[in-house]
């Protein structure tokens, strides 16, 4: 089976979430890979949400909000933009491919645009392949063996009556 990335999308309640609603109403087809979490504003998106998703097995994360200058909350998407840049900076340092997190803008009227963003993102992530961040934490196979060896060495001493 071909690789179907799991992507978490954080969409702002006013523009992008509604754009996704509109894409639905207009029956615009796009891949099923993006799972949407609604937040009131892209300004609510905390870098830890992205880390959380990646560490739990997401292959990529999309953050979507109103266009700059058109925020429902006046200017909060600019704060999202600033956080996103610092987040990307850190993720690069952590060895994550640039393209696994993406910030897009889509107004409530841009269902088509959002669908295109998703389509493009899914295609790009497919090219990158699975992320599987959790595998980073696994030690090589001899860990258990080594632990056993220590236990064995100490076995005799551990024989105590309680």
């Amino acid at each position: 089976m071909s690789f179907e990335p799991k992507i978490v999308g954080f969409l702002c309640n006013w523009c992008s979430y509604r754009a996704a609603d509109l894409a639905g109403t207009a029956r615009i087809k796009y891949p099923e890979n993006v799972r949407i979490i609604r937040v009131m504003c892209s300004g609510r998106v905390d870098p830890s949400f992205v880390f959380k998703a990646l560490s739990l097995g997401a292959d990529a994360v999309m953050v979507a909000g109103c266009h700059p200058g058109e925020c429902h909350y006046l200017e909060q998407n600019y704060k999202a933009m600033r956080r996103f840049h610092i987040l990307k900076h850190t993720l690069r340092a952590m060895g994550l491919e640039e393209d696994r997190v993406r910030l897009v803008w889509a107004s409530a009227a841009e269902g088509q645009l959002l669908a295109e963003h998703i389509e493009k993102f899914v295609a790009d992530v497919k090219k990158l392949g699975p992320l599987n961040w959790g595998h980073n934490w696994a030690e090589n196979g001899d860990r258990l063996h080594a632990l056993e060896a220590i236990v064995k060495e100490h076995e005799e001493a551990m024989e105590v009556k309680s």
Partner: peptide, 25 residues
């Protein structure tokens, strides 16, 4: 707090005084 660095990043980025992506970068 689940992730110390994320909190710091988020706070510090929030007060960057620019709305221009290139300048922010």
């Amino acid at each position: 707090v689940e992730d110390f660095g994320a909190r710091l990043m988020s706070a510090m980025a929030s007060v960057i005084d620019s709305n221009d992506p290139e300048e922010i970068d």
